[in-house]
Design a protein around this nucleic acid. Sequence first.
DNA 1: AAATCGGGGGC
DNA 2: GCCCCAGATTT
Length: 339
Amino acid sequence: MKPESILNLIFWFQNNRTDHFFRTHRNVYATWISEIALQQTRLAAALPPLQKFLDCFPDLQSLAVANEEQVVQCWQGLGYYNRARNLHKAARYITENHSGSFPNSVEELKKVPGIGDYTAAAIASIHFNVKVPVIDGNVKRIFSRLHRLDYNPAPEKLRDILTHIINHVQEPGEFNEAIMEFGQKICLPSSPACPSCFLQEECIAFRENVTAAFPPKIKKEKTAVAWDIYLFTRDKSHIGIIRIPEDFPFLRGHMGFPGYLTIKDNTFSIGIDMDVQPKAKLSGNFKHTIMHYLISASVFVVPADSLSTLPDEILFIPIAQLGATFPSSFMLKAAAFLN
DNA sequence: AAATCGGGGGC
DNA sequence: GCCCCAGATTT
Ligand code: SF4
């Protein structure tokens, strides 16, 4: 990147930045939570649940004293629930090892559960003025096009280039935010706004008219799977739920409905013994995607007293409590069939 | 180095 | 419907 382009980028950012709620009154706690929430998640999708999470846990102490299940529940709608579990661990880790205030070096930040290269660089540069570059999806995409190279995974050479740039910048945090917001608003993942881009001249992919081919896209196989869900009702007001076991492919440890998932020839069960599979009438179907799994879900409503046996660990709760008990969107979609 | 781990906005 | 995102951790 030419020195002039770096200045243009910062100037563009100063005039076009969006003042999101999580960074208007800057504090390191809110930055941390928002950076974690935005991992692999588009801004528009993350904002409402992020606002809810910050309302629920406004500071490090409130997060540290909560229990893990509450924290995961408040992560509702964001997915990748280990991020929530790590937030909770991290709050306790910082409380115990750093007297409740964030460490200010990349090295120490990376020891915090859930904080890796990217998040450590973001926090260190934005809040402690450390000259360290962030390397996220935006940065890799932008430089992949500028250089017409595949930067995924990011080679050491890219880090060197960025480190050199940021060493010549006054405010590293501002530069890091600038390049990410440039990626989010101008050098978009698809259909980048090249006609209005101030980096055109030095952008090799643009000059060679191959921006659509960079970064190279990797397409991954999708797998169609079937998931049968059983809604065991009691007294028309209560519903049977159970903890999803640790050997399940996803949503492990969440509360959910009993059922079983079939992936190719493998069956994963949640509380259901296949041999005593209840006779039930199909109440409806829905589709949902988790990772590369295309799930066709079938929902069966079964009055619990019509069955001779039930899973031992099943718990009956008021239907109205489901929204505060299920973190996952998948189970909440199934719950909608109770109406 | 490669697999794992959710979800929804926007095209 | 499909794509891909302000990644981290485990294997
Ligand atoms: S010219 Fe297009 S592809 Fe190149 S940096 Fe600008 S927006 Fe991105």
